[in-house]
């Protein structure tokens, strides 16, 4: 009898875990940002709006701060100052940068439930180049991806060029 209960327990636990990883793990919207990068600062308003509109149990926003000088304190200060409503983590060792292939701040990587990127690039086309800010935004790339996900469609992988501050690569740095 005990064995039967134990069996049922383990089967239930396994089902729970499976459903957890297979069905309920949210899509992740990773946003690479720099505390002192003006383009990152500019996009805080847009990101807050997108978060309000799309964030759910299935769509999780995570801010990643890859600057070499980022500390928990600088990240917390940025999060508080611009009232960012999502988790922010540091990545000064570039674990996330390398895993997700980010090169710019701000740059977003949207990953599906198996952590495969389905979108990488700009939030929208506000910036045509550094300092060249459109008066009329015509492409809302991240919002489009999030709309598809909200409708439970997984779009094919797409990449755009983010405009902002280049993430300094430390792989070749010579520390003397």
């Amino acid at each position: 009898m005990h064995k039967v209960i134990a069996k049922i327990f383990w089967i239930a636990a396994a089902l729970f875990l499976l459903s957890g990883t297979g069905l309920c793990t949210p899509y992740k919207i990773y946003i690479f940002m720099g505390e002192t990068c003006p383009v990152s600062r500019h996009y805080t308003l847009t990101l807050k709006k997108l978060h309000t509109e799309y964030a759910s149990e299935k769509l999780e926003f995570i801010g990643i701060f890859p600057n070499r000088l980022s500390t928990p304190a600088t990240i917390a200060a940025f999060k508080e100052k611009y009232a960012l409503p999502f988790t922010c983590i540091g990545d000064s060792t570039h674990t996330w940068v390398n895993r997700l292939g980010a090169t710019i701040t701000p740059e977003v990587v949207v990953a599906d439930t198996s952590n495969t990127a389905i979108y990488r690039g700009r939030i929208d086309n506000t910036f045509a180049d550094l300092g060249k800010r459109r008066r009329v935004i015509t492409e809302r790339d991240l919002a489009n991806v999030l709309n598809s996900l909200k409708d439970e469609k997984t779009p094919a992988f797409r990449q755009t060029q983010a405009i902002g501050c280049i993430i300094t690569s430390w792989q070749n740095a010579k520390q003397e």
Partner: peptide
């Protein structure tokens, strides 16, 4: 100017960006 550039570590942290914006 948004990012402070007042010592080696601040400047090195933005090295690739500084190269890009001065070249262009």
């Amino acid at each position: 100017g948004p990012m402070p550039l007042t010592n080696y570590s601040e400047i090195a942290a933005y090295a690739d960006m500084i190269k890009y914006v001065t070249e262009t």
